[in-house]
Amino acid sequence: MLPSTTSGAPSVPVPPLAGIGLRHRHVADFLTDPPDVSWIEVHSETYLAAGGPRLRALETVRRDYPLSCHGVGLSLGSADGIDPRHLNRLATLYARLQPELVSDHLAWSTAGGTFLNDLLPLPYTDEALEIVRRNVERVQERLKRPILVENPSRYLDFAQSTIPEAEFLAELARRTGCGLLLDVNNIHVSAHNTGFDPLDYLSAIPADTVGEIHVAGHAVHDTGCGTLLIDDHGATVADPVWALLTEALRRTGPRPVLVEWDTRVPELPVLLGEAATAARLIALIDKEACDAA
């Protein structure tokens, strides 16, 4: 059991070790026999109800693990700005759970008061950067904490884009003080689909801005004129993504690494096995750094 604050939440930060996303089918396992995993992450919007058994179960599990809350609905890229009702509900949830990390995506999901159930891409321009800057600063002001912003998976490039994605994110972090959630599966998927070098991408990300790293599985589709990678979080992590994680960690040093699995969710031991692979890579990088010192 971790040391706790008066709120019942662990009083230690998310460690630079491997964690897993807590999904509904595994909650009972965590309640009856808490697994040996260093930290957990949940999707914030799953727990926005004011009470109920799902939120109470998370509060119970959370006593044993550092927690990251990963949002999917802030619409940080929306020209309409941040929905104050949604932001207030998140602020209430985070005040209750006291997560050590909070994140959302470089994407938009709302337009004209309509919510679209997807993480939609935006062009990387000076105008878009200013919009995202305003939105991130609004969120951080309301939450009274910095957030992490995740790089998206992409399937096309906008003709209007004038700033490479990694440079866009680096400048966003510089202007707002936010951190970055580096999803190396998304980098691999986007690099394959749009034709950039993932190692050049990693080199453009300031190491000190990376607060968390994600890995996940993806699907491979034959389009008849080549393959398209789809970021579906529905399989084991592919070897090229593990290799890219290793390169990312060599640049950043050990960081909290999360294994995401959101579709066709397997039994808990499978997910813990993926986390064990991530943990071995973190330990490898830590040893390399110690040997070089």
Rank of each mutant, 00 (worst) to 15 (best):
A57V: 14
L181S: 05
A219W: 15
V210P: 04
T236I: 14
D231H: 03
E45Y: 10
S161T: 05
D83Q: 07
E100H: 13
Y201A: 03
G195I: 04
V27K: 08
E59F: 13
V149H: 03
H26W: 03
T223A: 12
A278R: 12
E137M: 08
S153W: 03
P254D: 02
V257M: 02
A243G: 09
R142A: 12
A173H: 01
H26Y: 06
L180V: 01
L244T: 01
R250C: 06
L119K: 00
W108H: 04
I187G: 00
A159H: 14
L229D: 04
P35C: 13
E127L: 02
S44W: 11
L74I: 09
R280P: 10
E150C: 02
V102E: 10
D126R: 07
H86S: 11
P16H: 11
L90Q: 08
G8S: 08
S203L: 06
D231A: 01
T236V: 15
E141Q: 12
A279F: 05
D36M: 15
L172Q: 05
P164F: 12
S7T: 09
T194L: 13
G177Q: 11
I40N: 11
P254S: 04
P121M: 03
E165Q: 11
H105V: 05
P256M: 05
D200E: 15
A275D: 03
D231Y: 06
A235K: 09
I20W: 04
L74D: 02
A275E: 04
R56P: 13
L129H: 01
L228Q: 13
N88L: 15
G224L: 00
A91D: 13
C225N: 15
S75M: 00
H105R: 02
P35N: 14
A279M: 05
A248H: 09
A49R: 12
W108Y: 05
P254N: 06
E127C: 14
V132K: 05
R264H: 15
V270D: 15
L116C: 03
